[in-house]
């Protein structure tokens, strides 16, 4: 049994300007000890997906299936989802300062979360908090546990949030842009920490980011999202060396790289990501697509293309896949 199985997940919001289909039926699986990277730009639906999996989608209509370790979460009583959340599924957010309570010490917050799920004495919970703070590389953890979030630097706060996530010994961690607010030297530390803990504890990890470099560093599998749908899904090595979807290819071509040959121009993708309020008909990417521009097919404007298997473990949602890959 897979740790997390998501099938046909769709999320719809009601807004003043009408209903928004933020996520339109996506599928993915996360195994124990593996890292799935979900990559996309603003409006791609990547963050909404993670919130829906966690049951944190206030006021949105969520359909499809989210099975965690065999238990269906969609439609399950709020109380039972809440018990899983924090205990077996933990979340790491971009902004630790808003995720941590400013009034309580770091140690008290971790101890409180631990006691809520595991019970036991206050003293044991405090000891557990100091232990996990040490695990995530916070020097002098017994002293730092008595400090408040504002006394921590950005990188240390992110470590503290990872400690909070790990304290209840979860099976799955969902990390939404966990290093986006950090400087690059600190980002490297936090990514190493996440990957190291994930390996050591055999956790499933879902990493949501806009940064393909971060994905390349720690993901095993990658899901590329665009306009609320999956564009492409592949093992990380394959996605970066043999991308199939015109959007994935465009994204990689438009990225400046430190190891690019001198004088190599950037090839930008024209246009902007679609507004979820007024998505284009058919494939959400077709108005910006180089392959559509050249080989335009009515298929591209008729229906949202579905993911189809194009190689082992590699799926592409493009009606012109054969054209692209010759």
């Amino acid at each position: 049994m897979s740790l997390l199985e998501v099938r046909g997940l769709a999320v719809e919001f009601d807004t003043a300007e009408g209903p928004v289909r933020a996520v339109r039926g996506i599928d993915f699986t996360v195994e124990r000890g593996r890292t799935l990277g979900i990559v996309g730009e603003s409006g791609s639906g990547k963050s909404v997906t993670s919130l829906a999996v966690m049951g944190l989608h206030r006021g949105a209509a969520v359909t499809g299936s989210v099975r965690f370790d065999g238990t269906e979460l969609i439609g399950a009583p709020e109380e039972s989802v809440r018990r899983l959340r924090g205990r077996r599924i933990a979340m790491v957010f971009q902004d630790a300062l808003t995720a941590l309570h400013p009034y309580f010490t770091i140690g008290d917050q971790i101890a409180e979360a631990y006691r809520e799920h595991h019970g036991g004495s206050r003293k044991a919970a405090r000891a557990r908090a100091v232990e996990v703070l040490g695990d995530v590389g916070i020097p002098d953890p017994a002293r730092r546990a008595r400090e408040h979030p504002h006394q921590f630097s950005g990188g240390m706060r992110q470590r503290a949030m990872i400690a909070l996530a790990l304290s209840c010994e979860p099976d799955l961690i969902i990390a939404d842009e966990p290093t986006t607010a950090l400087d690059v030297t600190v980002q490297a530390q936090v990514l190493d920490l996440l990957a190291g803990q994930q390996q050591a504890r055999g956790l499933g990890l879902v990493l949501i980011t806009h940064d393909l470099g971060v994905i390349a560093r720690i993901a095993d599998e990658v899901l590329v999202m665009y306009g609320g749908s999956a564009a492409e899904q592949a093992p990380a090595d394959r996605l970066f060396t043999a991308p199939r979807h015109p959007y994935t290819r465009g994204l990689l071509d438009s990225l400046p790289r430190l190891d690019a040959p001198e004088g190599e121009p950037l090839r930008a993708i024209p246009g902007s990501p679609p507004s979820p309020l007024a998505p284009p008909p058919g494939c959400a990417f077709h108005p910006r697509c180089a392959v559509y521009a050249e080989h335009g097919s009515p298929l591209c404007t008729a229906d949202r293309p579905l993911l189809r298997l194009v190689a082992e473990g590699h799926r592409n949602a493009c009606a012109l896949d054969e054209v692209t890959t010759g």
Binding site: V184, A188, G213, V214, R217, F240, R257, L258, D259
Partner: peptide, 15 residues
């Protein structure tokens, strides 16, 4: 040197 080496390359093998 450290700054440059901290930037992840968008390619797992190179990384």
């Amino acid at each position: 040197r450290a700054l440059l080496s901290a930037v992840p390359l968008p390619e797992p093998a190179a990384e």
